[in-house]
Design a protein around this nucleic acid. Sequence first.
RNA 1: GGCCCGGUCGUCUAGUGGUUAGGAUGCCGCCCUUUCAAGGCGGAGGUCGCGGGUUCAAGUCCCGUCCGGGCUACCA
Length: 517
Amino acid sequence: MSVRVRFAPSPTGLLHVGALRTVLFDQLLAKKHEGQLILRIEDTDRSRYNADSEKEFVETLHWVGIDFDEGPHVGGPHFPYRQSERQAEGIYATHIETLLNNGSAYKAFDTPEELEAMREQQLAAKQATGYFGGHWRDASADQVAQAEAEGKPYVIRQRIPRGQTIVMQDAIRGQIEWNSDLLPDPVLIKTDGMPTYHFAAMVDDHLMGITHVLRGDEWLPSFPLHWLLFDAFGWERPIFVHCSVIVGKDGKKLSKRHGATRVLDYSAQGYLKEALKNFIALIGWSPGEDREVMSESEMVERFSVDGLQASPGFFDIEKLKWLNGVRIREKSASELVDDLVAYITDDYTRQYWQNFVDEPMPNQVPINGIDVLKKLDAIVAKASQNRNYLEAAVEELKPRVTTLADFGDGLEFFLVEEPPMDTKAVEKWFKQAHVSGMFSDLIQLVESTNPTKLEEYESLVKTYAETKGFEKLGPVVHPIRVAMTGKTAGPGLFELMSVLGKDKVIARFRKALELAS
RNA sequence: GGCCCGGUCGUCUAGUGGUUAGGAUGCCGCCCUUUCAAGGCGGAGGUCGCGGGUUCAAGUCCCGUCCGGGCUACCA
């Protein structure tokens, strides 16, 4: 049997990293077994509907490289894929009829006031709250017919069998047992005719031939309802996989309070989709053999629900940063330039930085988003104007960045005519007695010897140091670095000089000479 | 409150009765080196939540307990 898995979000907001992980696992499982990945929109709660949400899911997932085989946007054999539309087609109505007829469900005409009164009574008596029978579970056919004739609004509830131990199987936790007397009869169809999650999701999972249901473990308490529903219909069950959640620093479910949880924000910050996926997969899944850095195909090959973790995982941004650096270093300069251009010209990247407000930190200049964009834009400009030069510069910076955004700062001195000078560095290295003479000499030397290659710059500088009797290279090399880059840290000096080229090298020596004297 | 799930270095994890409890990240140090990284090597960091029990032997099995989280809607 072919594997069919589904991502079934409720369209209420943004795609966050917790949901991303669930879809990722879905995708890995589907790919591993050459099955299908389906998107189904669970929009049965009209009050929480967010029109932009579905688009967010599809577009964000497309960015990370997760595309659906079936879904509202691409169609498929089980169309429609939005539950509101499925409801309109009468799919749930016909299925609830089955349950009504075989006694697994019943109509309940309780008013909200009656339910509230029941609840208060239960609270006062320190009993479990919920609909355990009420007036309607065992009402006679006549009573129901009469209430219906009167046009009273009703819901349809699931008739939970009493006095049973429900024994369920979860792929991660194994056997889970539940006392059915603890389960209130849940609403399956609401007064407005819409199905609840409990009903719609199970009906659709069956109808769509879903073989594995991956979902967050917050669904565990309603698992028995779902388990029972399959019995009520006499359907074969899918394999249920309740994944642990990703938690924030406080150990609670990841939410907006924990900072950037929106997947698109990681994209905007310059994280590579390969790194993000690799990292996310590692939370709650172990590929075995101490593997960590994996290609997509290796993840697919190794994926198994057996490796899934029952305990919650913490989103450790430090590890994401490391992994992102690793992925960047794996790429060629040419690939990186392509990535960079796509990244910088992306609408959301721009929007993100334009609206960026840094958190105030002691002893740290806050990051200015507009400035970040300005530096990044210089990269795009250079990409079309002199791609070879850009690639050479990117190659030098590769081991020194953690995100794509870091290239903005790092590449700046390669891209602007006059890089900003670090005043402390100028103070330290340009005020030494030998420096202005050295700069003049070097201008002459560069002009006369015409160096282009790294080795030529290296021998030029080293020979100069020797002939002038410098015992260490430091006093020679450091002022030159500041002259070339404005900074004290960065790529190898000879590498960077050869990339800059003769004209820029001389121009910067001249500028430095002014500052030094 | 009730029910359910979870609990191995700070963090992500390996581990299914016998291991000096392994790896990764982060941190520290050394090497490389013109700087910063990267890379290589090394180090610190774990009473396996706690307490009992079973066993020659327990992170691994059993019981209890504590802590954390989830659910407790005509939300998903």
